[in-house]
Simulated assay, not measured.
Amino acid sequence: MDLIYRGKTKDVYKDNNGETVLYFKDDMTGKDGVFDPGENQVGLKVEGSGKAGLQMTSFFFEKLNAADIPTHYISADVEKREMRVKKVSVFGQGLEVICRFRAVGSFLRRYGAYVEEGAELPAYVEVTLKDDERQDPVINEAALEALNILSGQEYKEIAELTVKISELVKEELAVKDLELYDIKLEFGRDEETGEILLIDEISGGNMRVYKDGAYIEPLKLNGYMFEE
């Protein structure tokens, strides 16, 4: 396969048939050897983390595809850590869309004067720019439109898809008595049809999940989800 792009936690290839393949690495974001999904650098390598990420990702993408929610997912080979996807283009230099069900993390740091930690939120959606140099700044609908990154209609569609996807993930986690506090998603356009699609991955590193009020570390989440 031909390497197209080398990312922090995934590499992008083109196979002999011209299909796009994501390879899930064992590299994880963090700092000083400690995992942190919010970090913009590789901080550690954990054997099995790539396979775990793809196992979770393929599980959720298959659920979403079955629910007729548009994604870039085609198929996955968990043992090889490979996921075949549709060719997509990103908005601007990339966006991250967060759906928050409880007040934690950066939301709490910003608005802690007005909300208590862990307070319930009504599937609150916010968008950040993927920009390591500027620490992924939050951006609103008006600025996205002014900068020609998204149209008002595209913003509305992405916000609606975000809530729909996040609610599905929340419900699947609840089956295992797990509670989703927040989740980070990415979107792009299908290069052939122009349709807005969910892209990237859905794994423990994309979300905060709690059980009985206790935080579940991302690498331990698969054990709860896929235990017999």
Rank of each mutant, 00 (worst) to 15 (best):
A142D: 13
V163Y: 09
E201C: 10
N140E: 14
A103W: 02
E195Y: 12
P122V: 07
I165E: 00
Q93E: 12
L129T: 04
K86P: 05
L180N: 01
G105S: 09
I98F: 12
G92T: 05
I199G: 02
K184P: 04
K63S: 06
I74M: 11
V85K: 03
E79Y: 08
D190W: 15
V125E: 01
N65C: 08
A66W: 12
L147W: 15
D131S: 07
Q93N: 14
G152Q: 13
A76Y: 01
A159W: 13
P70V: 12
F101P: 00
E120H: 14
T71D: 06
Q135D: 14
E79C: 06
K80Y: 10
P122W: 11
R110P: 14
E167F: 13
G112K: 09
E160W: 11
D132P: 15
S203Q: 04
I69E: 06
L198C: 04
Y73S: 01
D182K: 06
A119W: 07
G118P: 09
C99I: 15
V115R: 01
Q153H: 12
A146M: 14
E141H: 12
T162V: 11
L168H: 10
I199S: 00
E201I: 09
A159N: 05
E186H: 09
E172K: 13
K63R: 15
G188N: 05
T71P: 01
K184D: 04
F107C: 00
A76N: 02
T193A: 07
E186L: 08
E96R: 06
D136K: 04
E96A: 08
S203H: 08
I183T: 06
V78D: 03
R102C: 02
G118E: 10
V163M: 03
A143N: 06
L121A: 04
E160Y: 11
G112M: 07
K164C: 13
L64S: 03
K170C: 06
D132L: 09
L147Y: 15
E160S: 15
E195C: 09
A67Q: 11
R109G: 02
K164N: 10
A146E: 14
L173V: 09
Y155K: 04
K130F: 09
R134T: 10
L198F: 13
E179C: 07
L178Y: 14
L161A: 05
D77C: 08
A159D: 08
K80A: 15
F107D: 00
D77L: 08
R109K: 15
M83V: 11
L150I: 11
P122Y: 09
S151C: 06
